[in-house]
Design a protein around this nucleic acid. Structure first.
Length: 195
DNA sequence: TTCAGGATGTACT
DNA sequence: GTACATCCTGAAC
């Protein structure tokens, strides 16, 4: 029962991606507190992974955050209209991160629904309920996360952080990552994890 | 339930 | 100019 600290992120990215399953993401805004249980993640390792924005230590304005200290939030705009949230891992200077792909609502679901659809839980269709937070863009939309949160230190921030509630996930599934068909041999890396 | 197509803007070549 | 760690809609099955 504690906040995740620097040492949680300061290690092998694939291990961190697995360990994040079952942990809680907390988001505080003026509208209140929102929280969700992490159900799906992916690992990205710049050192040798062609799917990573910082592959081969490529340094640009966008990838700069990936080189930051572990426990930093990396957010970027994708397809011109969505955002993706990542947690930077490994020692500073090793550009690596875990992408958040799935969340199970735990607190503030009403607000998440409003952020996502413009109306409350009660008015959501069955289809919308089933596909509520099962994608990186959906999560950022629900939690009101944009590039404004890029670079946040998750170990000290009061608006975005992670929490270990002491739960032990039972079965962890493993598979290929989504949406990286351009990444050649890295397409096959089994670096996607879900409950 | 699956699939194709379009939306939309920024980063990088 | 091209590609992109996505999502939604509508049509076909």
């Amino acid at each position: 029962m504690a906040r995740l600290t620097r040492d949680f992120f300061d290690r092998d990215t694939v291990t961190a991606a697995r360990e994040l399953l079952g942990k809680y993401l907390l988001r505080r805004t003026e509208e209140g507190l929102m929280a969700g249980r992490i159900t799906e993640t992916e690992a990205y390792v710049g050192r040798m992974d062609k799917a990573c924005h910082a592959y081969g230590y490529k340094r640009t304005a966008r990838t700069e955050t990936l080189f930051a200290q572990p426990g930093t939030a990396y957010l970027y705009l994708i397809y011109g209209m969505y955002h993706c949230l990542n947690f930077v891992t490994e020692p500073e200077g090793q550009p690596s991160a875990v992408l958040l792909r799935g969340l199970e609502p735990a607190e503030g679901a009403e607000q998440m629904a409003r952020n996502r659809f413009g109306y409350g839980l009660f008015q959501m269709t069955a289809y919308q309920k089933k596909n509520f937070l099962n994608g990186p863009g959906k999560i950022c939309q629900a939690l009101d996360l944009t590039r404004a949160q890029n670079g946040l230190d998750l170990t000290v921030s009061q608006e975005l952080f992670l929490w270990d509630a002491g739960e032990r996930p039972d079965a962890i599934h493993t598979g290929k990552r989504i949406g990286i068909d351009y990444a050649e041999e890295a397409v096959e890396f089994p670096w996607r994890f879900w409950l």
